[in-house]
Each structure stands twice: as structure tokens, then as C-alpha cells.
Computed example of a mutant assay.
Amino acid sequence: MNSVDLENITKVYGGTTPSVDDISLTVGDGEFFTLLGPSGCGKSTTLRMIAGFISPTSGTIRFGDRDVTKLPPHKRDTGMVFQNYALFPHMDVTGNVVYGLSMRHVGKEEKRTRVAKALEIVGLDGYADRRIDQLSGGQQQRVALARALVIEPSVLLLDEPLSNLDAKLREETRAQIRQIQQRAGTTSVYVTHDQSEAMAMSDRIAVMSAGTLHQVGAPREIYRRPATSFVARFIGRSNVLEGVVEGVESRRLAVRLDGGEALFAPIVADTLSSQVVKGDRVALSLRPETLRIDPVEETTGAPVGAIRATVRMSEFTGSSCVIWLRYGEQDLLATIPDTDDLPRDGEDVLLRPDTGRTWVVAP
């Protein structure tokens, strides 16, 4: 079983502030698992501790039932794909891919078979004799992936492997990597700061910030049910409004926003919404696509379940329109279907959130 278990992993360099602070998570056998967060959040440090390049200050790392915490990298049975690919420019494609097998003293015939299989998996059969400088960036990335897969590792580790590609090639290559990983069935841990990349590729995502773990879950779960205001803002776009719980009913909460309006949110078992009580301070995550814009019918205030805001500007994006608004001192964003009847800049409108998609998060 090629699972990866991190138990209370902490890494402290010279100072007192941990780069990685007491992280525990499990990557399932054959899973594509992504560590996601902004630069400096500790995701690459976590990956390098899994690889064995960095030793944790405390905690335990297991691959299946093996404790690998103190094992050197070459004894962990991992394949690594680096940000800069780390290919040997003086070798052809075969030379690069076969390198790990040569270091393991694999027989000549088995080398030939495994290299051919690896190149087929990554879609580069027919490129075996090409020089590295004859390949595109995307092809070089796939050579690096083949070199990692050819040794048949227990765990595949990928450290921002698409960051050097342009936007279009990055989008194409991320789909190829996901397909390759699914064909190979290798347990994989992927590091990126790109939320779109993580959402498109992953079985599950761990969202990190400042060395701490904010949430682990499937992409749709993290997007629709963020655990904290950081996750809500970092994954996609979200309007996060703070307030105080004013009432707790059987299926929903009433939250009085700092701006004075009252909104509702569903109570969902085993989430923060089911744990708060009247008087608790919370935040509400409102995704732009869950907001409806209506005209203002009264001269003051807003009805319960709505927000009164002022339109700042509108953007036509093709299939939809993005409306920028001002609510008190806060900027809000709404995404609505394209229409010829857009609200005018400077006009006051009512924003009505979809109560079922309004989510309670930690402020």
C-alpha cells in the first residue's frame, strides 16, 4: 500500500516561527494530492520533507507501514519532478530517462523495456533519440515525468512543474499530467500556488497558509464549503462579510452583518455552522455567482436576506458580466448572466445571496 502519512510534522529553521507547524494529513494509495498555498506558506518545505531532502524538526512520515522519517532520499522509493525539470542537456531523451535505472543497476534488457513503457505513458514514444534542446518546454516536462516514473516509485512528488510554461501550454500539460498519473496509478503529491491548477488536477487539496493547514478536501468541497475566510478568498473569488450570529433556527442561522443587514446561512452538520451559538462572531462567504441583483424598491435600508450596495463598474466577459460593487468600506463582486439591462455605474441595487450557497467560515 503506497499511502503517505504525515503525523504532527513541524519544521523550524533558525528562528522560533515554524515554516511548517504541526501538520497531519494522509495521502491515499493512488491518489493525486495537492499542497496548495501562496509563496512562503510551507508547501515546498513539506514536499521536501516527504522526499527526504529536509528533516522535520518533529513528527513522523510514513509510506504505508514504513516509517521513513529518518531515511535518506535514495532509500524512500520516490520519484521527483522539479520546477526546472533538472534534465541533463548533454544526454538524449533515453539517456535522461534511463539514468535512474542505471543508478539502480537494472539489467540492460529490463532498462530498454521500462524506458519504452515510460515514454509511451507520457506520449513521447518516437522521441527516444532526440536531444533535450530539440524539445519544447512541455515535452521536456514530460521527459522529466518519464524519468520519475520509470523507476516505478512508491510515491511521485512534483514541485511546481508547470511554472516555467506559458499559460496555454500550462493548461494543456496539466491535463496530460493528470491522465498520465491515472494511467500509472502512482500515489502523487503535487505542489502549486495556482488554484486553477489544483482544482483541475486533484483528487484532494490541502490548503496551507503561513505554515499551517487550513483545510483538506475535494476541490468542489473546498470551493463550496471553505473552512476559513482565507480559504474562501484564496480558492476562487469570494465576498467575505463579517457579523454576529443573531439567531439559530432548526435549519439556518441569522447573521447580523457589521454593515447592519441580516443574512441567512444553512446549518450543516459537522461544520462551523452547526457549532456556533447566538452572539458568536462569524464570517459569511458569498461566491459572486450566487448573488442576484435586484433594483432597490425602498429609499433606505434593505430587506432581511439582502444587501444594499452601489454599483462601481460592470465588465462584459462573454457569457457573463462581472459587476463590481461597494458595500460600506468593502468591495464586492457579482457574476451574472449577460444581459442588455445591466445596472448603471453609481446605481444602488439589492444583492440577494442564494441562502443555500451562503457559507459560514471562521473570520
Rank of each mutant, 00 (worst) to 15 (best):
V4G: 05
I54M: 13
T212E: 08
T16W: 09
S154Q: 13
G42F: 12
R147M: 03
D65R: 13
G15M: 13
A128W: 11
A362F: 03
D270V: 14
I61H: 09
T187Y: 12
P89G: 08
D280N: 10
L333A: 00
T310V: 12
E249R: 13
D270P: 01
M208R: 01
G305K: 12
Y190N: 11
P337F: 07
T113W: 00
V4E: 03
S314N: 15
C321E: 08
L119Y: 04
R170D: 05
G126C: 13
G137W: 10
A254I: 02
M199Y: 04
I50G: 00
A334P: 02
R352E: 10
D338W: 13
D129T: 06
T57M: 11
G217E: 03
D280S: 13
S238M: 06
K278I: 00
E7Y: 07
A265F: 06
M80L: 15
R312N: 03
G15H: 05
A269V: 12
L119I: 04
I61S: 10
K117M: 05
E172L: 02
D159K: 05
G42H: 08
E347M: 11
G279Q: 02
R48T: 06
S19D: 01
I177H: 13
D340N: 11
S24A: 00
S3C: 01
S314R: 10
M208H: 02
T212D: 00
M49F: 05
L257H: 03
S285T: 02
M208K: 05
G138A: 10
R252H: 15
E261P: 15
Q275G: 04
T46R: 04
G346D: 11
T94F: 08
G15Q: 10
C41M: 12
G328Q: 01
Q139A: 03
L71T: 09
S58G: 12
A167P: 08
S196V: 14
E152S: 12
S44P: 01
S320L: 05
E315N: 04
S58K: 07
R225N: 10
Q330W: 00
D348G: 03
H105R: 15
G138P: 02
G28P: 00
D65L: 02
V191Y: 09
D5P: 00
L325M: 14
D67R: 12
T57Y: 07
